[in-house]
Every structure is written in structure tokens, then in C-alpha cells.
Design a protein around this nucleic acid. Sequence first.
DNA 1: TGCATACTAACAAGCGTTAGTTAGTTGATT
DNA 2: AATCAACTAACTAACGCTTGTTAGTATGCA
Lengths: 193, 193
Amino acid sequence: MTRKEQVRKKAIELMKFHGFSGLTMRLLAKELGIEAASIYNHIKSKDEILETVCFDLAKEFELAVLEVNDIYFNATEKLQMLVTAHVRILCADLDASTVFMHEWRYLPEASRVSFIEKRRNYEHEIRTIIQLGIDEGDFDEIDTKYAVITLLSALNAVVEWYNPHGPLQPDEVADRLYNFIGKALMKNLEFRV
Amino acid sequence: MTRKEQVRKKAIELMKFHGFSGLTMRLLAKELGIEAASIYNHIKSKDEILETVCFDLAKEFELAVLEVNDIYFNATEKLQMLVTAHVRILCADLDASTVFMHEWRYLPEASRVSFIEKRRNYEHEIRTIIQLGIDEGDFDEIDTKYAVITLLSALNAVVEWYNPHGPLQPDEVADRLYNFIGKALMKNLEFRV
DNA sequence: TGCATACTAACAAGCGTTAGTTAGTTGATT
DNA sequence: AATCAACTAACTAACGCTTGTTAGTATGCA
């Protein structure tokens, strides 16, 4: 791990606890055992750290939904695979995922706008999947707009409780969540995995 | 509405958009059409605003679950009534609820500890209800620890999408969410409201 | 008279960041 | 093997700005 990566990792770890504004460069420096000014040998600015976290993860979600839509054709399959991909991404770096969820509001104006746009797109893709499920007759006829936010919130809550050192693997978490969310969405009451 | 209430209301409204740290007393003052120093004629400190929001709402949730447990005896009823009460509280003041969800991390150390404890209690009460549902044979046998967080996250997402000027009344939102969550939890596949 | 509400001026602390410098290491050239 | 340039990673010192907040004062209404 390069020094730059070490700095970023520690920054994200601290940001998770203190929030973006609560993490000062002097605190970060102290935790790294160096002076605040030295941090700038490795990163361009405090904002840059947050931007990297947010857009790296956004990119992963973007690619995931693209792939799912490419490979699978019916809504139940799409949903199951997307839940799995989503949870895998979240669990791959829990600190980063937590910061992604909570701190994007503190992105600089321009980045924030583009971030919100990306999130809107992701939500739209999922909404389309749900609508497909309704059209295919598999899902209950619900309001897709609030369904997608409810669904995503349930998924994203993973970052609040998942313990990488616990017994569950990310894919097992995904299975349970798909079970939970699937039952909630499905019309077909014989639904079982 | 007293001047004090006006100040608090505007503060919460701005906090929702800018976050706790992003809301400066000078910005708040500007929005109120006064000088920053004048704010201190009405409130004690910036922290105090956040503390009031967080603990007022925490108290409401606390009382709601107490009442539900007093009045209803089986898990499905308890769950339905708690969902309704929870959503009502959220929708009663969306700005405050949003701040409550996102900004509690910025509470001063002592308050934050006691806030987390209160939240832990609330989660524990809901967990007990879910466990009751499992014991009664109505709910699927799931891990109650992650179920309660998943469930609460789905509920709390209301603050992200609910539009008070839209067609849905809070109780209608609660109905739909209970439907969604109920189906996810229930073993009984004939479940319908 | 007293209370509510506002003001100006200022303070101390903390913020992110820059400039300029100094060691230590690496890798190629002499 | 010795030399030199380039790079990495740290330092001290400081700048300019913003922060929450206080002190002291003025104005207008009950």
C-alpha cells in the first residue's frame, strides 16, 4: 500500500466516525504520526478525498447495474443479481461505503450536482427493473418511485450492521436481503428461493 | 410562533440542506435578515438547536413504542401500529426528522452517547416485537438483529421521498409501508391487509 | 420601567492550505 | 565504486479566512 493509499484509508476511517467536517487535517496528521502540512505531499485537498470515495463507488454501482441488465432478462433475476452486486460493493470496503452514504452532502457544489445525477440514474435503472417485474406480473402493483428508495435504504443499511469478522459472507447477506425484499415486492405468494 | 421558534425552524430547514457543520450562524442570520450575534438573544448555542431536535424526536419515538406495547398484544398488531406511529412522527415535521436522521453524529460527546443509548432502546423494543412474531409463528425465523435495522432503514427512508403536498396522507404512507414490511416479515403467505 | 429584539465590534480558536526547506532513498552515469 | 540527479516524505512557519460566541449598547413597544 503506497503512502497515498495509507493516507486515504486513514482519512476515510476517521471520516466515518467524525463526519467530513469533524475530520480536520490536523487530526488526520496526528493519527498518521506526521504534521498536517505533510499530508499535502500525498493528496491535493481534503475535498479530493471525499470526491474520490464518492465517485469511485458511484462508478462501481453504475457498472454493476449495466452488467446485470446486459446478462439477465427477467425482473426477478435482475433484482436478485443487482442485490448481490450491490451488497458485494458495500461490503468490499465498509468504511468507504459508510462515508459514501453519509458524507456526499459535503461534496463541493459541482461534484455534488454530478453525484446526485449519478444516483438518480442508478435509482432510475432499479425503478425500471421493478416496473418490468410489475409488467411481467410477478411484482405487486406498487408506486415504483417510493419502492426504489425504500428498497435501496433497506439495502444500504448493510453498512450499519454488517460485521466483516462475523459469520456471514457478503453473498449470504445478499441472499437474506433478497429474500426479505423479494417477498415484499412479489405478487406471487409461492415465492421462495 | 415566537421568535425563538422561528429561529429554530429556519435553522433546522437550513441544516437539512447544508448539514450541521455547513450551517453557520452567519448564514442562519442572513436568512433571518439579522446579524449573527442577534441569534444569541433567542438560543443558547448552535449545539443546543441540534440537541433539541434530536431529543425531542427521540422522546416521541420512545413514547410511541411504550403506548403500542401497552395497548396491543400480538406482534402483527404491534408492528402495524408502530409503523403508523413512526411514520406519523416522521411526517409531522419532515425537516426536523431529516436532521434527526443525518446530523445526530454531530451532537456533543455527552449528548451523543445518550442519544445512541436511546436509539438502542428503541431498536431493542422493535426487536422484541419481531421476536414475539416469530415465537407466535407468524413471522419467518430471521435474524432479528439485522431485521430491525433493515426495517427501520426502510421506514426512515420516508423522510427522503415523502412530499407533504403530494396526494398521500401520512397514514396512507404507513399503510403501504406496513404492507411492504409485513409481507417481508410474515411467514403466513396469505397475508394481506 | 422593563422586556424583546436588534445592533456593532471584537476575540480567541481553529480551519485548510502554501511556501520553502531538509533529510533519506533510489537508480542511472561516470 | 563513487557521484549526482530525482524522487519521496517529512518538517517549520505562517497566511488568510471562518468559526461560534461574548460584551456592551441602542431602539421601540407593553
